[in-house]
Computed example of a mutant assay.
Amino acid sequence: MGVLLLASAAGQAAEFKTVGTAPALLYDAPSTKGNKLFIVPRGAPLEVVLTYGDWVKVRDVTGDLAWTPSRGLSARRNVIVRTPNLKIRASEDETSTVVFIADRGVLLELGEPGANGWIKVRHRDGLAGYVRGTDIWGN
């Protein structure tokens, strides 16, 4: 039975949320009485691992786990660039025109998925293009 549970959990897509308008404070327990661990800037994506009442256990881009109140998170989706000098392309092709270059750690708004592992993203200045899903985190 444990194998079936593991198999079904592995088949589920990760759930991501974005830190809302204020930075999120992350704790070591689902309570404000817990130790404060990190502050995550607004707009940063977090993977939701577990929900417990009004709290969520989240994983950040570095893989660290912590708790934060769910009210501080938004359904809006952002991603973080994982690759230095990532080329954002005009279409879903390595040979297409480079629209702009984003450095590692830059936040981009997640757009719709494209073909063959490509994903549309948009920079806050309005420039948009496509990247490979493996070059970003939070998708």
Rank of each mutant, 00 (worst) to 15 (best):
S96H: 04
V3N: 14
P23S: 12
W118Y: 08
N35H: 13
D93W: 04
W67F: 14
E94Q: 08
K17I: 10
D54T: 14
T51F: 06
L37G: 13
T21K: 14
G117D: 08
T68Y: 06
N116W: 07
N139K: 08
I39P: 00
K36Y: 10
R122N: 01
E109F: 05
L6Q: 12
L73N: 07
V131P: 00
K36A: 12
I80E: 00
G53Q: 04
R104C: 06
G126E: 06
A22E: 15
F16S: 06
V61L: 06
A102G: 04
A14N: 14
T134W: 00
K120M: 01
P113K: 04
G138T: 07
L73P: 06
V48S: 08
R82Q: 14
G63D: 15
E47V: 05
P30C: 11
G111W: 00
G111F: 01
Y130I: 04
L6C: 13
R59T: 13
L46P: 02
F100K: 06
I136V: 15
G43L: 03
H123K: 10
V3K: 15
L26M: 10
L108I: 02
R124M: 08
G111L: 00
G20A: 09
T83Y: 02
S96N: 07
I39H: 07
T97S: 09
I88M: 09
L50T: 15
V58A: 11
A13R: 03
R77H: 08
G43I: 00
L5Y: 11
F16G: 09
D54G: 11
V79W: 01
L46K: 12
L26E: 08
A66T: 07
D28I: 05
G133Q: 14
S91N: 09
L4M: 13
K17Y: 09
S8V: 14
V131A: 03
V98Q: 05
T62W: 02
D54F: 08
D64A: 15
D135M: 01
K87N: 14
M1R: 15
D64Y: 10
G105I: 08
V40K: 05
E15K: 10
S8I: 14
P30D: 02
E47S: 06
R42V: 01
V121E: 05
P69N: 08
G105S: 03
P69F: 12
P69A: 13
N78K: 12
V79Q: 02
G129F: 04
K120D: 00
W67P: 02
W55F: 13
G11F: 11
I136E: 01
V58Q: 06
Y27N: 13
A9Y: 09
A13S: 15
T51L: 07
I88W: 04
Y52Q: 15
G2R: 13
V61R: 06
T68M: 10
D54I: 15
F38D: 12
R59C: 09
E112W: 06
R77K: 14
Y130A: 04
H123S: 09
K87Y: 07
N35K: 15
S8P: 04
N35Y: 11
F100Q: 06
N116I: 01
R104Q: 15
L108C: 01
D135C: 04
K57D: 00
L37I: 14
V61D: 13
W67N: 05
M1E: 13
S70Q: 13
K87L: 12
P41S: 06
P69Q: 11
V49K: 13
R42L: 01
V79T: 10
V19S: 04
A24M: 12
K33H: 02
S91L: 09
G11N: 11
A102I: 00
R124K: 12
A90C: 03
